[in-house]
């Protein structure tokens, strides 16, 4: 049984880390799943819809296994009570301190907003991937990182019915 687990993990570990060795003993490393979420805060917008199209998480520059989730589509990030689940990513808990953990979330070209003043338009997110540095120990403790986007500062000046996304972010765990 143990052997089977190891043989299943072995190719994955080798693939992810370029490491050809696996400690096939009692301490076979288990990958743990972590969450990346997105949550907005705003007093100016009643709705703000954004979708993600790609996500990458790297450890010391090497890509980790990540999975963008359907819940990352058409997220109303103006709803401050919900942290949308954008992606899962996997690593061994002890790895969180082995190198810089960085995440990039690419948003779909356009989103949309409705202002509390009755205005509405589309959000131009073409130039605005969300880039983040994760704190390994906080991530390990909480199992997730939540991107807080300050929409009041991130949604720029109106230009013929559109507003550019200028990400103002913070990470909480």
């Amino acid at each position: 049984m143990k052997k089977q687990t190891c043989s299943r993990i072995l190719p994955l570990v080798a693939l992810l880390w370029g490491v050809g060795l696996c400690a096939c003993g009692d301490s076979a490393p288990e990958l743990q799943r972590y969450e990346l979420r997105l949550q907005g805060t705003t007093s100016r917008f009643s709705t703000t819809y954004l979708s993600a199209t790609a996500v990458q998480v790297t450890l010391g520059g090497a890509p980790l296994r990540t999975e963008l989730l359907p819940s990352s589509q058409r997220m109303n990030v103006a709803n401050a009570t919900h942290a949308h689940l954008v992606a899962h990513f996997w690593l061994r808990p002890e790895q969180v301190r082995e190198g810089a953990l960085e995440a990039t979330v690419v948003l779909d070209d356009f989103g949309a907003f409705e202002g509390t003043d009755g205005s509405a338009g589309f959000v131009d997110a073409r130039e605005a991937p969300l880039r983040l540095k994760l704190q390994g120990d906080a991530l390990e403790r909480n199992g997730r990182a939540v991107i807080h986007i300050d929409l009041d500062r991130s949604i720029g000046a109106e230009r013929q019915g559109s507003r550019p996304l200028l990400p103002h972010l913070r990470l909480v765990y």
Binding site: R131, L166, P167, H168, R170, L171, V172
Partner: peptide
């Protein structure tokens, strides 16, 4: 041509980014 400048800051247990275009 359009581009975004993003400043990323880090402190003990936290980070933030801010941008202008």
């Amino acid at each position: 041509v359009e581009f975004t400048d993003t400043l990323q800051i880090g402190w003990d247990q936290g980070m933030a980014t801010c941008s202008a275009r």
